[in-house]
Nucleic acid binder design. Sequence first.
DNA 1: CGAGCGGTTGAGGCATGTCAAGAGTTGTGG
DNA 2: CCACAACTCTTGACATGCCTCAACCGCTCG
Lengths: 248, 248
Amino acid sequence: MRPEDLPEIRHLSLFRDMSQVNFNALMDSSYAQIFPPSLDLIRQGDLADFLHIVLDGSVELYASWGERECTMAVVEPVSTFILAACIRDAPYLMSARTLERTRIILVPSSDLRAMFRRDTEFAVAVINELAACYRSVVRSAKALKLRNSRERVAAYLLRQSLLAGGVLSYRLPVEKRLLASYLGMTPENLSRTLRALEAEGVKIDGARVIITDRDRLSDLARPDLLIDGPDLDALGAGASLPHARRGA
Amino acid sequence: MRPEDLPEIRHLSLFRDMSQVNFNALMDSSYAQIFPPSLDLIRQGDLADFLHIVLDGSVELYASWGERECTMAVVEPVSTFILAACIRDAPYLMSARTLERTRIILVPSSDLRAMFRRDTEFAVAVINELAACYRSVVRSAKALKLRNSRERVAAYLLRQSLLAGGVLSYRLPVEKRLLASYLGMTPENLSRTLRALEAEGVKIDGARVIITDRDRLSDLARPDLLIDGPDLDALGAGASLPHARRGA
DNA sequence: CGAGCGGTTGAGGCATGTCAAGAGTTGTGG
DNA sequence: CCACAACTCTTGACATGCCTCAACCGCTCG
């Protein structure tokens, strides 16, 4: 592992408050690795051996059932994923693959489990991280059950605009095909919905999003703090805010 | 609080391993209360003041957005809910209402947060509980995105049969209207789907479920350990297994 | 250059939601 | 105790949201 990576990891909320000695010990048993794009890192059902920390690149978490498959989240630097499976020493519920060339730190899950028994601050950090992750999935489940696809798309577009600092124009952080899966719809349906939304205050040009009437779009999306934020945990959230917490 | 309740709470995985002194301290600051049916206990958006423990009765967790509303989970004795919100000292993401006359223990969330800094075993228990809750919601999100409503209903019916000990006949633990909302469909659609499933190995008579051809039903539902269990956290799971962990 | 892939668009079909009506059940108050 | 209201559940008719299949464009990359 490169020494210059350590400070970045250390700044993660998960590791920020633990003692330096314990942090070093944890990092000593860990190692970094670089993966090419589209590589499967984790297959759902496998046992959780390592906590993963994304340093560079991005990782898609997806789930499959029979032939069907859907994107659950995208993890961007610098953040961790599959913490929960590591803690419970249980099989992964989701698979993971790189979306691009990606550098990842692997922390053995047994060391992780031993560590939060030794370091209270770390245990508290894990508790906070897990609680945040839990709330994130609940939000996502609420969005799926309470909003139709049009409203989900509109809310996503608005949210991305806010995350980018309230700008009226930005580029989609992921491919539309993946976004469609994340939002629980087919690529065709997303394409059509984006087209239809041009009458509702937003213009789409390739990956470029231009919000032409924020109020109008808001009327449709009816953004809600208890679904859309303010926590930073949805797809693409980490792009603009370094050190944002992400799914696990 | 009745003294005879304490052992039952003490046996919850959340409190099982903490020191007796600390358990007593936590219980001293808590109190029990009895609520009539259909009473709103928690409104989403409110600040999380208390961890709730259901001793008797049952509680529905639901979410709303504008006029729309959906059931997220049902909590049955003896288990806790809204742990995550307490820990993050954040607004509830879900509302809660009693389904019947229900006895509940209220643990002040500030005491809770103080306690896991003092008691490592309790911290570890909280970590495990949260990780389990997280995984439970992920399963539920997977079911929603990967299965259609027919498959969800079939999987639910099979799962309930297993939870009841593999019996071929049992009664639905909740009203169909609520079940429909939990499964992400309308009551009308659930009614029709149950009817249609009679050609697929299950007979429905009121609240009574009779599985006539388990294999056939399994072929349709294709139950999956990474969606349907083996953790006990879905709707109605607690009914047959005392001390099962439930949503938070 | 040609294959492969992402994205778009159209046509058509199925799944699911909406609205409405009626049967059965439960709970309540006179 | 009965009558009524309210509610669940069911069923039918209908509307529509979303998916499927297919074709096509443009781009990228071997």
